[in-house]
Design a protein around this nucleic acid. Structure first.
Lengths: 255, 255
DNA sequence: CGTTTTCTGTGCGGTACCGTACATAGTAGA
DNA sequence: TCTACTATGTACGGTACCGCACAGAAAACG
């Protein structure tokens, strides 16, 4: 059980030099996160910064009329709660668990102290924050210019990059909430992907069966963000995504 | 002429404690920025961090096919080039001067040194970065859910908040590039605003003549971002925008 | 002054997505 | 096994925006 919460399973923590890790380790506590759990409510101060291991957390903005849109996601490559060390303590967006799983957390005040003290930790967290900024700006661009079909591909890729397998548990309704579109739009887009033998899905379970094809159908946004994460945080590159950089030719792929 | 480049004219620099300001001041050099000038090219490392005074700089992402979208803007309340102290050195987006004017700049390496050394400077820049993150996420949400009409209102408000008057020099073509929509869409939206006696425009010159009405027609995004800037950087609140918080009732305003 | 360029206005067909309504099929519980 | 619920599929009119084409008017330029 202890191994499931090994700090080395989060890429940011794993990248810390031993000395700073020794200071941080006793402050970390294991947490299980359930699907739909809200780690962080809009405008409310929260106590902890979370380091996901095999869970995925979405940063979602909910508008006055109830409509929502995801602005970024974080998994084992990162953390949730940058505002706690950036100095603002709260944000207008909500953090909710998109895929259940485990993680580690630390009290914000304690992390803040280490952040001010340890240069390596600080540089690491700030580099991650910049990667997150890239993801957010690309979400803005994607929302402006790309179709629901393309965005679904991007979203699926970003999700399975953070999961141990190619399967995810997620209804079309929830995906629609994330993308900020109608559920029927997701039904249609997912139908096309299934017809193209790119994914399989059935009542809340989705499996990606042809990743290269999915990448071919996604907009450039996925690649831009992936490359920027790889540049800023080279040790976090998921083996799945990295395999893509090899010149894989797949028949009939692309659009 | 020297007074025009007084560091106190940039809100971030003005908020620095005297001691840190004394160290920074000799490193600052005045710059004039021309309309359309590119301060920062996508993926290219740049030498300086810019502190606008009466200029406005847009952060724009340009896609492979040439389409573009603005993800954030910065004026006298902030700075351009967060990646230089966040540690990534470059970003995928471009920084271009949207409104000509003056500013101050500092070599990235020098700022970085002060950033690591001075706690007040560091906290200030990180708080600003968080405000910028809020603006970016809100742009993402706005792109997803709001109409061109609403976005134009938001964009005009954000621009004049950073300018000394209610007038701005900007063709509809350029605004369309910023918003990532067709020029004709901007023509139509601006026509409605003019018909409603909210703005006046004529061949590249726009004047806001009824700010409260413009605020009433904008989406919630403008207010969310304004409030978050006011919370994180209270000393930067523009008198124009602040006046709004007073209970001004204007006949026929709003929607 | 005439010519060219820039900026804005307008029209038109096409399409992606919306809101709504309703049908069907798995799944879970009594 | 019957019932309720959840997840997905499908249809249909409406609308916001697109791409394109072109016209007029103001400014810039020779």
């Amino acid at each position: 059980m202890a191994a499931a919460f090994d700090p080395k399973l989060n890429d940011l923590l794993a990248a810390l030099p031993a000395e700073e890790m020794d200071r941080l380790q006793p402050l970390l506590e294991p947490v299980q996160m359930g699907l739909g759990e809200v780690l962080y409510e809009s405008g409310k101060r929260q106590a902890h910064v979370y380091f996901p291991i095999d869970s995925i957390v979405s940063l979602v903005y909910v508008m006055e009329n109830g409509a929502s849109a995801e602005v970024a996601i974080a998994g084992h490559e990162g953390l949730v709660g940058v505002s706690l060390f950036m100095g603002g303590d709260t944000t207008p967006s909500r953090a909710l668990v998109q895929s259940a799983g485990s993680g580690l957390r630390i009290k914000g005040s304690l992390l803040r102290k280490e952040f001010d003290r340890g240069v390596a930790l600080r540089q690491l967290l700030l580099r991650y924050t910049q990667a997150l900024i890239t993801q957010m700006t690309q979400t803005a661009v994607c929302n402006r210019h790309h179709t629901v079909d393309q965005q679904l591909c991007r979203w699926l890729l970003m999700s399975i990059d953070r999961l141990p397998s190619n399967k995810l548990v997620m209804t079309q309704e929830l995906i629609a909430n994330m993308l900020g579109v109608r559920r029927e739009g997701v039904t249609e887009a997912a139908g096309k992907l299934q017809a193209a033998a790119t994914i399989l899905y059935h009542r809340g379970r989705i499996e990606v069966i042809d990743r290269p094809k999915l990448e071919g159908m996604a907009c450039e946004c996925y690649e831009v963000v992936r490359k920027e994460y790889a540049r800023l945080l080279p040790w976090t590159v998921s083996p799945k995504a990295a395999a893509k950089t090899a010149p894989v030719e797949v028949g009939g792929g692309g659009r």
